[in-house]
């Protein structure tokens, strides 16, 4: 019976690429979501501070 070739570098490459891509994609989305969430919080704070009475400038651009 012939011994099948191991081809381990190819096997390692395939799993490494798959796991690396999924990890990077998930990490990117998590980082991006936190960044967008911070923007959203800043915008809400800007709106709230502009709505406070006697604040003066009522036509500020976001």
């Amino acid at each position: 019976m012939t011994v099948p070739p191991s081809n381990l570098p190819y096997l390692f490459a395939a799993f490494a690429v798959v796991w690396a891509v999924f990890f990077i994609y998930a990490a990117y989305m998590s980082w991006r979501r936190q960044s967008v969430q911070r923007d959203l919080q800043d915008l809400h704070e800007a709106i709230e501070s502009a709505e406070e009475p006697g604040d003066g400038d009522e036509n500020r651009t976001l």
Binding site: M1, P4, P5, S6, N7, L8, Y10, L11, A14, F15, V18
Partner: peptide
């Protein structure tokens, strides 16, 4: 038995 370890790629 024919392809060896490379066949495990199939599972992903």
């Amino acid at each position: 038995q024919v392809l060896g370890h490379i066949q495990r790629i199939f599972y992903i």
